[in-house]
Design a protein around this nucleic acid. Structure first.
Lengths: 121, 121
DNA sequence: CTTATGCTAAAGTGAACACTTGACTATCCG
DNA sequence: CGGATAGTCAAGTGTTCACTTTAGCATAAG
């Protein structure tokens, strides 16, 4: 749970930058070199390399070097982690909202007293 | 698409902090006041208020003031946005990986030459 | 009325972030 | 070999972040 927290930190932080999300979009169409990732971006190569390092630290991306070119590819696992955190939260609170909605629909004013323990006012 | 990008920035940035994720977890069990959110955290009330403002700016949370207490509740829409970005990406690249897997399984060495345009070595 | 509570607003601080530039290394190509 | 390409490293800069402290202002409770 301690490392899991940090890894969520890193993943969400990595996703919070539009340039990095753009790189991920590019990479979801297939592997690419650092320069290919840099091409559409108006920023120095060095900056792009730094973004790639952030993506790699978050485990969203894995890279390997062949000769002088570093090839980047997506790593689905880290994204699944983030996605499952999100969907877990959403399920929880949609469930709660549904329950609340059901109570409001079913119960009329007469039933209110017996609800106090289950659901605060 | 222009504002959509910024809103993703804000949502992912909001999610990138463990204190804020903790608040969201608390809030998925039901609405809470700022002080209730602050209780489990070892940080000043003022800091918690700032976190709440970040959550509110990201539209993950909506707040309303009754008397002197500000009540916070979750807003599912923003999270759905983030979740759908994630799942869209994941679908795309899992699709790609499946296609690649199918090619590797079906085609044998003999077919390799004709693949060069579609997929680099 | 007085005091405690719940929050707000403002200013400051140190660390992290998103870049840049410039110098350098390794590899591929002709 | 020599030069272009692809990336790396280090240092510097302005900005944003995550806090803190201090002071203050409503509202609720005694």
């Amino acid at each position: 749970m301690l490392n899991h927290k940090r890894s969520l930190d890193r993943v969400f932080h990595a996703l919070a930058d539009p340039a990095r999300r753009g790189m991920l979009e590019r990479l979801s169409r297939g592997p690419a070199s650092v320069s290919e990732l840099a091409a559409p971006l108006e920023m120095s190569l060095a900056a792009v390399v730094q973004h790639v390092q952030v993506l790699e630290a978050s485990r969203l991306v894995r890279t390997r070097k062949h000769g002088r070119v570093r090839t980047c590819r997506i790593e689905p696992a880290a994204l699944a982690t983030a996605e499952s955190w999100l969907s877990a939260r959403r399920m929880l609170w949609e469930q709660r909202l549904d329950r609340l909605g059901a109570l409001l629909a079913e119960d009329s004013v007469a039933a209110r007293k017996s609800m106090k323990r289950k659901e605060g006012p």
